[in-house]
Amino acid sequence: MVSDDPVIEVHDLRMRYGSVEVLDGVSFHASRGEVLTVLGPNGAGKSTTIEILEGFRIRSAGDVRVLGTDPARGDEAWRARLGVVMQSWRDHGRWRVRQLLQHLAAYYVPYSTPGSPRPMDVDELLALVGLAEHADKKVGSLSGGQRRRLDVAIGIVGRPEVLFLDEPTTGFDPQARRDFHDVVHRLADLEGTTILLTTHDLAEAEKLADRILILAGGRIVADGSAAELSRQVEGRTEVRWSRNGEFFVHATDAATAFVRELFAQYGEEVADLEVRRATLEDSYMALVQRFESGERDATAQGLEVVR
């Protein structure tokens, strides 16, 4: 479902607070139906980026287009095509789950088109996020995980073309997390929704994202699929084996050839063979560590992965 119409276009985005440069020339884009994950240490500018795209924060410089509109000038018709999943705290505690969802859904009715009927059916949506049996409960009495499911439901009730999620699965148990991943895949694959989410969970990023952006120090230090990042960022595979009771480790770019060589040389003496490809976590940690240890320019240039 990934097509070439740019839904999100960001070019040389900069954000300054006083003398502090939070975003220092960020560029990326996303197409229809694409799932983008933004990873990065705290304070890297993830939330700032997402808030600029949502139109909640005015950038210092750069070009930004979401659904062809500058978010700083987006009107309510534009907003109706957006979904924002925010971290709720204790708002609307007295409302009942279905009542609140129905109320917020009704604002989207005037923006319904034959191509995308708005809003979504509230009861179907409650079932989709696993809240059907809690529909008549008060929002204030929901557990943390149930509340986050409601946040997700509110974010997508208007059948958005672009969905922004800032750390959506914080506080989810494994079941809720899996359900949430199903919802994201469904939206992206069936509805063609473009999804931009931030997370700290690398496994989640790997599972969900078509593309991962790693943001560090206000710059994108890597941009590619999980596999591409693993291959190219810290692209070495580790080979471990033992021979005559002695253990060896070797890092290589060509593991298969190395292992063939190993067997050709030592044959049956080789034991305990283990070939371990770098995980996303390895790549991520390596990247962020290198960045933070001051190799800023080297990192930015040498590790940029463009697909």
């Binding site: 309510e76 907003r79 705290w89 609307h92 917020l104 604002y107 208007g158």
Partner: peptide
């Protein structure tokens, strides 16, 4: 209170939510 608890932000992310 409703600025603090996020009610207002929810209204803002809904089309014409601030009017309502």
């Amino acid at each position: 209170v409703e600025r603090e608890d996020g009610t207002l932000l929810r209204a803002k992310s809904t089309p014409n939510g601030m009017v309502g």
